[in-house]
Amino acid sequence: MSRKPGIRFTLFLLLAPAVLWLGLLIVLPHVEILVLSFSERVAPRVYAFGFGNYLEFFTEPLYWRTFARTAIMSILVTALTLVLAFPIALYIARVAQGRVKAMLLLLCLLPFWVSELVRTLGWMMLLRETGVVSYLLQATGLTEQRIEFLYNDGAVILGLVYGGLLFMIVPLANALESLEPAVVEAGFDLGGSRWTVLRRIVVPHAMPGIVAGSIIVFMLTVGNFATPVLLGGKNGLWFTEQIYAQFITRFNWPQGAAFGMLLLLLSSAIVWAGLRLTGQSLGTTLKQA
C-alpha cells in the first residue's frame, strides 16, 4: 500500500509527454480556434460573439461548393486508392515471400523519404506542358503539339492517390496477412469461384484493414494542401486553400477558424458514416492500423 503513491507518480511522469502533447498541441489550439470562429468583427479591433462566420459559409456559394467538391473528390481518391492498393497488398501479403516481401514494402516506402513538396514538384516536371510526358508524346509522334497535363482534376487526383497509396497498402497487407491459407482453400474446396472467395472470405476478413486504410487516406486527402495547390493550380479549389486564404491573405482569422471547424466536422462526419456503413467499430479499426 505504501508503494502506491510512488507508482502513481511514475505513471504520471510517463504519461506527461503524451498529455502535454495532446493538451498543448491539439486540444488547446482547437478550443482557441472554436472560440475564434464565433467572434465577429463589429468595428475595427472590436469583436463580438456571433454566428456570422458560419452564415458567411452558407451564403457564399464559392465556399460551400469548394467544400462539397473537396469532400466528393476525397471520397473518390480514397476509393481509387483502395482499388489500386488491394491487389498490391494481396500480392505482398499472400504471394511474396521473405526478402521479396520486404523489398516490395520498401519500394512502397521509398517515395516517402522525399518530402511531399518535392514529390509533388516531381509530378509537375513530368506533367507540365514542357515536361517529360508531353515531350515523349511529341517525340514519338503521337501528338502534334505539346499537351498540358497539369492544372486539372485528373492531375490533382493522380497526385493525391500517389500520396495515399502507402497508407492504404500497409494496413491492408497487415489485415490480409492474418488470413489463414487453409480458410481460402476451404473457400475454393466448397465450390467457391475466385470472385466468391474474394467477396465472401478475403474482403470481409480484410475489412478492418480496408476501413483503417480508408480513414487514414481520407483524412490525409481532405487536409492536403500542397498537392491540390501545385497540381491543380487555380483550378485546384481545395477547401484547405480557402482556410489558407482567410488566415494568410485576407487576414480574417475568425473566418478561417470557422472554415477549419467545418472541415473538422466534415471529415469526422464522413468517417463516422463510413464506419456505420461497413459495420466496423473504431476500436478494431485502430488496432489494424
Binding site: 487453409a182 480458410v183 476451404a186 467457391g192 472470405i201
Partner: peptide, 28 residues
C-alpha cells in the same frame, strides 16, 4: 478444386470466422 465432387475437412478445420455457423454450412 472448386469443380470436384470432393470436399475436405482441414487439419485446422478452416471454418470461416467471418460467418455464422449457419452461413458456414450454407456457403457451399
Amino acid at each position: 478444386a472448386n469443380k470436384r465432387p470432393v470436399n475436405m475437412v482441414f487439419q485446422s478445420l478452416a471454418l470461416f470466422p467471418m460467418m455464422s455457423v449457419g452461413e458456414n454450412v450454407a456457403y457451399g
